[in-house]
Design a protein around this nucleic acid. Structure first.
Lengths: 193, 193
DNA sequence: GGCCCTTGTTGAAGATCTTTTACGTCATGA
DNA sequence: TCATGACGTAAAAGATCTTCAACAAGGGCC
């Protein structure tokens, strides 16, 4: 049901650190019974208990749950296979748009002169960053506005309001990445950038 | 105590998907009260409940707990400011290398002719993807070997053994992204690619 | 053997989480 | 205006998790 074997995962991590159930329990501020029951999958621990236990190792929750599904899906994408989601002015090509549960979006972006993500600043979950390949771009993040050119780069928390504008006379090309993925293909398109 | 605001995080993810508590609860197979209480941090959900809820969005638990802190750190990086970690042959420029707790690495990679990540295949946690900007590159992932050229792209689970080689006669330029970050700056350098 | 300590497990009591069922608010529309 | 439905919230009952307090198995040592 769970799709992820919490008990065995915990046991592995505990044993690889040469800890007994009691020792780990003591460090975590829970009882040995708790750890025994969790390791046998007799219970599904509360997040707070699990966090206490993992903190004592220490292991982040994210790390603990990393690695479900290691299937070899499509790996290579020819230029023509990339999913294009731009309108007339912007051309945005997504890598692996149809891939479910991927943890990033990678986008090959082409901004013609005058292109603008709009006066209404973008804000959404996640982080994004990229490298300018050609041309120049004006990027605003929060109160900060900068002109970036080929070779420059950016990285910010996407919850900060942001905007991209090509104020130059030539096309600007950027390769960017978002996490978690901001774009999907078909269905429920989300905000962009 | 928890160090991580589960309630608000869940609320944000739910709202960003335009779901009501009841709708999400229905999809997840729990009741709306459960979601209400969790979002208010009145309870610490069991892992199994949280997983059911996240699966319905869908969001992996790992993703859910990834990242924190919405401070406005450095956003823009001039080409000369990028942290270069290559040796004589490879040039890899990291965006935001010193940024703590970022959830991605973004790298501007330059492979001269003959460059090779090595016969011993790379394997590590996470996912990675990128876009070829110039030149050609041979990438092997698992049993699959492909020659990619400018405009092509790739995306794969980094636990699959992989290798990059420039078999051509001109420099190959790639912009890639990894999550979680494979590279840090100083201290405990991890494997690459 | 007998003693002591450590290991992981388990039944019952206590604490916490989840559901049931309901309430109050805010739109929409007849 | 009143009805209807969707929204988030909350008290109490039910289900699950955590602790307490044992228990049995194994190893080291006199």
């Amino acid at each position: 049901m769970s799709g992820f074997d919490v008990g065995n995962r915990l046991k592995q991590m505990r044993l690889s650190r040469d800890l007994s159930q009691r020792e780990l329990a003591k460090r975590a501020g829970v009882t040995n019974s708790t750890i025994s029951l969790i390791e046998q999958n007799s219970v599904s621990p509360s997040v707070s208990s699990l966090k206490k236990i993992l903190d004592a190792m220490p292991v982040s929750i994210s790390e603990f749950f990393a690695g479900e599904s290691i299937s070899q899906k499509q790996v290579f994408y020819r230029s023509s296979e990339l999913t294009e989601i731009g309108d007339n002015t912007l051309s945005w090509k997504l890598v692996g748009a149809r891939r479910p549960n991927r943890s990033m979006s990678i986008i090959h972006e082409h901004y013609p002169p005058g292109a603008d993500t709009g006066q209404e600043m973008l804000e959404h979950e996640g982080e994004e960053g990229g490298v300018i390949i050609a041309g120049t771009i004006e990027i605003q993040v929060g109160d900060d506005i900068q002109q970036l050119e080929a070779g420059d780069a950016y990285y910010f928390d996407s919850r900060l309001p942001h905007r991209f504008r090509n104020m130059g006379t030539s096309e600007c090309v950027i390769v960017s990445a978002n996490t978690p993925p901001s774009f999907s293909d078909g269905g429920d398109e989300q905000h962009h950038a």
